[in-house]
Write a protein that binds this DNA or RNA. Sequence first.
DNA 1: GTGTCAATTGACACTGTGTAAAGTTAATGC
DNA 2: GCATTAACTTTACACAGTGTCAATTGACAC
Lengths: 196, 196
Amino acid sequence: MSREPNSTRDRILETTVRLLEQKGGRGVRMSDIATHSRVSRQALYLHFASRAELLIAATRYLDEQLDLGKRLHGSRNAASGVSRLELFIQFWGHYIPDIYAIVKALMLAEASDEAAAAAWKDRCNAVREGCQAAIEALVADGMLADGWQPQQATDALWTQLHITNWENLTLHCGWSTEQYVERMTAMARSCFVRQT
Amino acid sequence: MSREPNSTRDRILETTVRLLEQKGGRGVRMSDIATHSRVSRQALYLHFASRAELLIAATRYLDEQLDLGKRLHGSRNAASGVSRLELFIQFWGHYIPDIYAIVKALMLAEASDEAAAAAWKDRCNAVREGCQAAIEALVADGMLADGWQPQQATDALWTQLHITNWENLTLHCGWSTEQYVERMTAMARSCFVRQT
DNA sequence: GTGTCAATTGACACTGTGTAAAGTTAATGC
DNA sequence: GCATTAACTTTACACAGTGTCAATTGACAC
């Protein structure tokens, strides 16, 4: 899995992630990344076409480091629709804190950068697929609450789990990760699971 | 209420709002606003200290134009906690589309601008107060669902009603304003109102 | 007239991204 | 030993968009 920072490229990616985490995803310039990677600013452009490309590569790099696939395993193999929903929220609630800084940088870049916007949209759509799978597992069990079409329930769950909401609840309102997971799970159950 | 654009200042504000609405809150430069106000770019700085100041003034201007206070009247005078919650969501769901573009510009400016960030935070806190009042009206009726403290319920409702969620559900998922209001109301009821 | 207020004109500073060109260093091949 | 190549450095510059500064104009007031 190429864990050692064998190449300059990897060193840059590592520095990028570290710097973004230190600064909460804000105000990290190309020149900062270059300096801390002990490389000239221009060298960055030998490895990445633009700031957006670098950010995108950094998110991928981090996903690998954090073993995204493995972390998703639990929810994918859930025994019931309800537990799939719960396990997905649990996975996600614990994953966000690890990726927040770098993803925040991507969100901020979205404002001014075409490529970053596309990458960000992509990432969001990946989360949407997780939500869709969870809702469809509910449907399969006949446990989707009345009044919801699968698609609209997916829209709603996906929106609820959006990173900006996590940001608001934890960073602004002071919820802990555990509280976030617990309360989001409770809300999702209230909204989407048929009450027996 | 000084409805006529008596001054250059008002003309600038009007142009700002119009331009932002046309462009969805994105990519409107000071020079664009100046040109369309038929004024020099530098004249803008005679009336507003910075881009952020101009955006902030524009949101206030728009709130006045839209008679924010009057629109809030219904929910403030609701007969019960549940209806207060419902009327607040209804008000908000119909208000967002009118302010979205300009508020989006403020959100985007937040990324790079200290003053815009503060103004944006302020605005969000105003919405929070509305949410808090609705939750407290529920509490007063003994109708807040089990498992919630008023403060955490306020956090959750406030987050749910955040503009980025409206953006996601309407602009990306294609929900209509009516659908947004109806479904958000249903979700809020599921989550926060004690089931009888 | 004189003062002053609103606005204009043109020039310029600053920040950060991205580009371009020429030079250095070290490893590889023959 | 020598040429080639790749990775990287240094220096310089272009470009956008915001914000600043100074000198000027026109209109109105007293």
